[in-house]
Design a protein around this nucleic acid. Sequence first.
DNA 1: TATGAATGAGTATTCATTCAT
DNA 2: CATGAATGAATACTCATTCAT
Lengths: 219, 219, 219, 219
Amino acid sequence: MGQLKGRRARSPEAKTARRGQILEAAQRLLTDADLGGIAMDDVAREAHVAKGTLYLYFRTREELFLGLLEQAFEGWFDELDTKLAGGQGWIPATALADLMTASLGRRRLFRRLLAQLGPVLEHNLEDEQALRFKWRIAGRLATTGALLERRTVYLRPGDGPRLLLHLQAFAAGIQPLAEPAAVVRRVLQAPGLDVLRVEFEKEFRAAVGALLTGLERTN
Amino acid sequence: MGQLKGRRARSPEAKTARRGQILEAAQRLLTDADLGGIAMDDVAREAHVAKGTLYLYFRTREELFLGLLEQAFEGWFDELDTKLAGGQGWIPATALADLMTASLGRRRLFRRLLAQLGPVLEHNLEDEQALRFKWRIAGRLATTGALLERRTVYLRPGDGPRLLLHLQAFAAGIQPLAEPAAVVRRVLQAPGLDVLRVEFEKEFRAAVGALLTGLERTN
Amino acid sequence: MGQLKGRRARSPEAKTARRGQILEAAQRLLTDADLGGIAMDDVAREAHVAKGTLYLYFRTREELFLGLLEQAFEGWFDELDTKLAGGQGWIPATALADLMTASLGRRRLFRRLLAQLGPVLEHNLEDEQALRFKWRIAGRLATTGALLERRTVYLRPGDGPRLLLHLQAFAAGIQPLAEPAAVVRRVLQAPGLDVLRVEFEKEFRAAVGALLTGLERTN
Amino acid sequence: MGQLKGRRARSPEAKTARRGQILEAAQRLLTDADLGGIAMDDVAREAHVAKGTLYLYFRTREELFLGLLEQAFEGWFDELDTKLAGGQGWIPATALADLMTASLGRRRLFRRLLAQLGPVLEHNLEDEQALRFKWRIAGRLATTGALLERRTVYLRPGDGPRLLLHLQAFAAGIQPLAEPAAVVRRVLQAPGLDVLRVEFEKEFRAAVGALLTGLERTN
DNA sequence: TATGAATGAGTATTCATTCAT
DNA sequence: CATGAATGAATACTCATTCAT
C-alpha cells in the first residue's frame, strides 16, 4: 500500500500511492457534492496535500477527475470480467440484464462521472491524456466485449463492445433523471410528476431487458 | 409575429418576440460552442441586446438555456405528435425505431442540451421555474406517450411516456460519444479506437431497434 | 389632499401630492430596510408608480432620499418650534435635554437618514438641489436656534443654531451604535460586550444633559 | 519587519507585513476618495498585488476596510493610553477636552471611517469577524476608559468607556459636516450658509468642552 | 518533491438612469 | 405626464494554475 502521509514520494510505488491518495480524496468528495462544486482546494484539503502537489500528479483538474472515471471504468470492467469469465454456459437475456443492472446500479460514482464525461471532463486535456484514456477504454471494451460475445448466443462479433458502450451511455443518460439537482428533487414531489420520478435500477433494468430480449429474438 | 429590431417590446406579443430573439441568438451560438463556453455577454451581443435586457426575460443564465431546452423538447414532441396522430394503423417496431432515430438524429441542439441538463442546466433555478419546466415536460410526455400507446400493440398503459423518457436518456448518453470535445475528436483518429468512433444515428437506431423489438416480442 | 392614484398630476397641488406619495412610499420602505437595500424599483412599486415617474419628481436617487431627510428635518424643526414658542419662561438645562431627547428619540427615520447624510445622500446631487437643501436647513436652524436662545439663559447669540447642529450630529453618531447591522446585533449578545449595547435615548440624554449643564454653568 | 515587495509571504511576519501593505494602500486611497468610490481593483493596484491576493488576507471588501478602522481605533487608543498613563494628577475638563480634540482632530481617516461604520462597514461580515472587532473595541474601551476614570474626578465608574463611546460618536457625526461631499463643499460658499461651514476641531472642542464641564460640575 | 502564496482572467448579476411609446 | 423596456457601466469574488521557497 505504500503508507505515506506527509512523506515524499520518491519510489514509483510511493508516487502511485500518492496519486491514489488524491483520487480517493476526490472520490470521497464526489459522494456528497457535484463535480462542479468541488474545487482543487477541496481535493487538496481532503487529501491532506498542498494544492500544488495535485499538479504534480495531474496536469489539470479535468485530468484528475478523468483519472477517477478511468478507475471507475476499470472497476466495472473488472467486475464484468470476473462474472463473465467465472461462469459457464450461455447467459440468457434476462440474466444478463440483471447482471448489468446490478453492476451499474451499485456504481453510483461511476454513473455520475459518466454523465459529466462529455460536458466537462473531456475538456482541457492534453492529447496524450485523452489518447491514453480512450485507449484504455477501447482495450477493455474489446476484452470484456469479447467475453460477452462468448457467453451469449445473440451477440454477433463486434456486438459485445458495442453493447457495453450502449449500456454505459444509457446509464449516463438515466443518471441525471434518477439523481437530479436539489431544486428538481424538491419540485418533483408535486403531484402529476410521477413519470419523472425515476429510479435508476428500475428504468435501467426495463430498458436493457427489452434491448437484450430484442437482440436475443432477432439474432 | 411582432417584428421588432431595436424597438421596445410593450405588447405581450412583442415581448414574446424579443424573448424568442434572445433564444435564437443563444441557439445560434450553441451550434458552434459548448454551453460552458458561452457567456451572457456573448448571448447579448449575438442578440443585439444589452446584457441587462437578458435579465428582463430570464432570471438567470440557467433559466435562459433551460428555456432553449424546453423549446427543443416542444419541437420534438410536436413532431412526434404530428407523425403519430397523422398516420393510421399500428406502427411496427422497426418503423418506430426509424421514426425516433430520424427525429432525434435531426435535433443536434436538443441532444446537446439534453446532455447538459443534469450537470449544468438544472442548477441555479427558482423552484417555480423548475416546476414549470418539469410540468411542461411531464404533460407532453403524457400526451405523446398516450399517442404512442395507441399506435402500437406492444406498449402497455404507461409504457408510452416511459419509452420516450428512455429514448431521450439514451440520446443524451450517446451524444457526447458521437460529438466529443475537440481533443477527443482529434485523438480518436488513432488506430484501434474504432469502437469509440460513434455515429449517433447508427448507434441509436441499433439500440432502439433492439429495444423496441424486445418489447414487441415480449408483450 | 389631492386624491390621485393612477391619474395624471397636472395641477401644482396634484404634483405635490404625487411627490408626497413617492416620499411616503420610500419612508415606509425605510422602516424595515437599510437605505442601501432599497432600489428605485422598490420605491416605484411601493408607490404604485412606474419607475420613470420617480425621475419626473426627483432627478436622482439621492435627491429622492434627501427629500425624505429634508422632510424629517422639517418635522423636527416644526416640533421644536411648537414646543419652544408655545411655552413661557426659561428652560433649564435638564428640561431642554429631556425635550431634545424626546424629540429625537421618537424620530428613528430621521436619525437613520442623518447617519447616511455624508456617506451616501450628499453625492450625485446637482448644485441646485444641494443648495436648496442646505439653504432650507440653514434657515430653520437660524429660526429654531433663535427661539432656543430666547428661551435659555445660557445660550449666547449664535449658540442656538450651533447647538442644534451638534445635537443632530451626535444623534447621527449614536444611531449606528444603537441600531447596528444584523450581524452586529447578533454578535453583541456575547458577554463582555455590554458597553457596546447602546440605547439611543439613554446615551443621548446623558451626553446632552452634561453638555447643556456645562453650557449653563459656564455662561 | 519582514520587508517584502514582490516576494512571497511564507512566514507569519511576512504575512502580517503583506496584510499591512494592503491596508496601507487602502489607507492611501481613502485620503482622497470616498469609501464608496474605492473598488477592490483599486486597492489591488495601489498595493501592487493581484486582486485575488486581497482575498487571501480579507474575506470580503468590508472586512478589509473594517481592518482599517480597527487599526485606526487602536492608534487612537494607543495615543490616549500614552497620554493618560504618562501624566500625573487630575486632568481638568478643559485640558481633557483639548487632549481629545487634538487626538481626534489629527485622525481624519479615523473620523471618516467612523462615519461609515454603520451604513457600510458592518455589513457582509461573518459573525466571527464582527465579534472579533467588537471584542477588540470593547476591550480597549474598558482599558482606556479606566485610565480616564483614574485621571479625573468627575468620571464615575463606568463613565470612562462611555465617554469614549460618546466622543467617537460625536466625531463621527460632525465629520460629514466638516468634510462634506464635493457638491456640498462648493455650495456652502453661498452667503447665509455660514452656520453650515463647520470646522471639525472648533465644533468638537466646543461641544466636548461643554460636556466635560457639565460632568465636572455635576459630579 | 512538496508547499501554499500569488496570480488574474473570467462573469453573472444589479440597478440607476434614459427614452421610445 | 406616465410608463416600463432597455441600457450598460460597474464590481466583488472565484478558482485553476503557476512558481518562489
